[in-house]
């Protein structure tokens, strides 16, 4: 090509060199995030970007759906699940790095109503003050399984079963209650933190097994410094502050 020596080409070449140089220390990682962790993940990604210069691309979905995609070679490098089961499975199936798995957040469950006077404690569960109780799908969503566990522990499950409606995930259970279609529901504390328009009872931790949300480094992410650094950041104090502010506990 005869234009090789033109000034424009020189500038482009210089820019390419500069880009390659920053590319060496500022990398990009793609993180699959359970939908319930959407907001804290966004804040953590921003804080991580500011601290390291790396870029994080977040993909949201339900844990089950994301896991299914991971088994089909989805281009995710880090997996923030809403449970411990799927990250464990990912390791067992050889899809993730074995010793990278850890609990990044512990979900807390609340009984919630959009009606400011309905919920004071668990006594509402044995009252006639409601017709529908929304929970997340106990088969696929950890918060749904925890809700069933709580009702069994309080010995009200059999009586309540006909009144239960299921959302496919905890987000939908929340919608059902927020729109008033269900008067009552088990939701995540993270969904109602900072919202005092309704009434809620935060379920004591001794009534259900802790909802461990685990993270794991997926194959394909282990040679990307940004992916490794992101998981490191997620364990750190800055991330811990964000996670707790959104209504989760940490280990």
């Amino acid at each position: 090509m005869s234009t090789c020596s033109s000034p424009a080409t020189a500038i482009i070449a210089a820019a390419a060199v500069a880009l390659a140089m920053t590319g060496a220390d500022a990398a990009e990682t793609t993180v699959a995030v359970a939908a319930n962790f959407t907001e804290p993940a966004g804040e953590i990604a921003a804080a991580f970007g500011a601290a390291t210069g790396h870029t994080v691309v977040l993909s949201f979905g339900s844990t089950g759906q994301l896991y299914t995609q991971i088994t089909q070679q989805a281009p995710f490098e880090v997996f923030l699940a809403a449970d411990a089961e799927r990250p464990m499975l990912a390791v067992d199936e050889g899809l993730a790095v074995a010793d990278s798995r850890f609990t990044y957040a512990i979900g807390k469950l609340a009984l919630w109503s959009a009606d400011p006077d309905l919920v004071t404690d668990d006594s509402v569960l044995s009252s006639d003050g409601f017709t529908r109780l929304a929970i997340a799908n106990p088969e696929s969503a950890p918060y749904g399984a925890a809700a069933v566990e709580v009702m069994r522990a309080l010995e009200v499950y059999d009586a309540l079963e006909p009144r239960i409606v299921q959302g496919n995930n905890i987000g939908q259970a929340y919608q059902f209650v927020a729109t008033g279609n269900a008067e009552l529901g088990f939701v995540a504390v993270s969904q109602i933190v900072g919202d005092d328009t309704g009434s809620a009872w935060v379920v004591p931790q001794d009534l259900y097994a802790p909802i461990l949300q685990q993270a794991v480094l997926l194959n394909g992410g282990d040679d990307n410094p940004a992916s490794v650094a992101f998981l490191e950041f997620l364990r750190g104090p800055e991330a811990a502050e964000i996670i707790q502010r959104f209504g989760y506990a940490i280990e």
């Binding site: 299914t68 799908n137 088969e139």
Partner: peptide
């Protein structure tokens, strides 16, 4: 179907 896929 969605539930079955979700729960593997």
């Amino acid at each position: 179907i969605y539930d079955y896929v979700e729960t593997l």
